[in-house]
């Protein structure tokens, strides 16, 4: 299979910080807002370079979203950031009315998504945010897989005219994607295979590649797709791949309800149904622990993906 080299472990939130800084350099209309989490969202470089375009909002997320919407009305391009739970669940109504219904060009920067937030536990670990943001008309949902792709997705989000939910994470993970412009709405086929399609997003993409290596040793040739943009979904790529392989695994650091798994299942059910297995949370909250402990405990990792692949191939 195609080899991907880990250039060194880096956090996707760091990729966001770098992308924000570069987007800010390229476009003076880019501004950043945060609710007392500048360091956590790696906004320091942007804030230092562009102090007049950086707005500390304090621990008041609802006002941050509304303020960002008001700024967007005047032509600015605001990135409003906090932890994933606090920029989705806490402010769903604000995003719904002011950003989506209100057609404001606001980018929601969502860090520490999923259980890999780790030790802080379930209050801070959202497994529901993709569902909430996917449900909103006009919202673009992007969940890049590594530092480099997050950087490039951030730059692409700044150029895109409309609401974007940009989801990334806390832990340091493999950095392996080529440094190339990010295409919103494109599914990236990282490895071509014939026996099973592994559809993955975010941190699960590297896990999917690891699973594909394990499966290759067993004589199974897995196609690995990086769904960096969950909405709008690149349906054509997913459908074509599953017609070729005849079996699908969907892996995400998110609960089943409203996640990528349900989305892909819905698309395939109405086009070309195939056996499908899911690697995700099942109506669950997280808990304290290290990221790797938690991923293993919930079965959301390379092992879980490989196991799901074996199972789904048997159902062909």
């Amino acid at each position: 299979m195609k080899k991907y080299t880990d250039r060194g472990k880096k956090d996707t939130r760091g990729g966001f910080g770098e992308g924000l800084y570069l987007a800010g350099k390229a476009d003076p209309k880019v501004v950043a807002l945060t609710a007392d989490l500048k360091g956590s969202l790696k906004m320091d470089a942007f804030a230092a370079e562009f102090p007049d375009r950086y707005f500390e909002c304090g621990i008041a997320e609802a006002n941050m979203i509304g303020t960002a919407a008001g700024m967007a009305l005047t032509g600015l391009v605001p990135f409003a950031g906090s932890f994933a739970e606090f920029v989705t669940g806490r402010v769903y109504d604000q995003i719904r009315m002011e950003v989506c219904y209100g057609k404001a060009n606001v980018k929601i920067a969502s860090s520490h998504a999923g259980i890999t937030l780790g030790e802080d536990g379930a209050t801070h670990q959202t497994m529901e945010d993709i569902a909430l943001m996917r449900a909103l008309p006009d919202m673009v949902v992007i969940n890049p897989c590594d530092w480099t792709q997050t950087k490039n997705a951030t730059i692409a989000a700044a150029k895109y005219d409309g609401p974007v939910y940009l989801r990334f994470g806390r832990p340091k993970v493999a950095d392996f994607m080529p440094d190339e412009p990010f295409e919103i709405g494109k599914a990236y086929v990282l490895n071509e295979g014939k026996d099973v399609t592994i559809v993955s997003t975010g941190h699960m993409v590297w896990e999917a590649l690891k699973a594909a290596e394990t499966l290759e040793a067993e004589g199974i040739c897995a196609e690995v797709i990086d769904i960096a943009t969950i909405k709008p979904l690149d349906k054509a790529t997913v459908i074509a791949s599953t017609i070729k392989t005849g079996a699908v695994v969907v892996a995400e650091e998110h609960n089943m309800a409203g996640g990528l798994g349900e989305l892909v299942a819905g698309v395939l059910a109405s086009t070309s149904p195939k056996p499908i297995e899911f690697v995700n949370g099942r109506d669950t909250f997280g808990q304290s622990g290290t990221p790797s402990e938690l991923l293993a405990a919930y079965g959301i990792d390379a092992n879980g993906i490989a196991e799901a692949a074996r199972k789904v191939i048997e159902r062909k």
Binding site: M71, T74, E98
Partner: peptide, 27 residues
């Protein structure tokens, strides 16, 4: 009409953002 409204408590934030935006574009 500049912005949607209806769910209460939100428009003042929008006005604050718009005012900061006006400052930013020197309006």
């Amino acid at each position: 009409v500049f912005q949607a409204a209806g769910s209460l408590g939100q428009g003042l934030s929008v006005a604050v953002g718009m005012a900061l935006g006006k400052k930013s574009v020197k309006d």
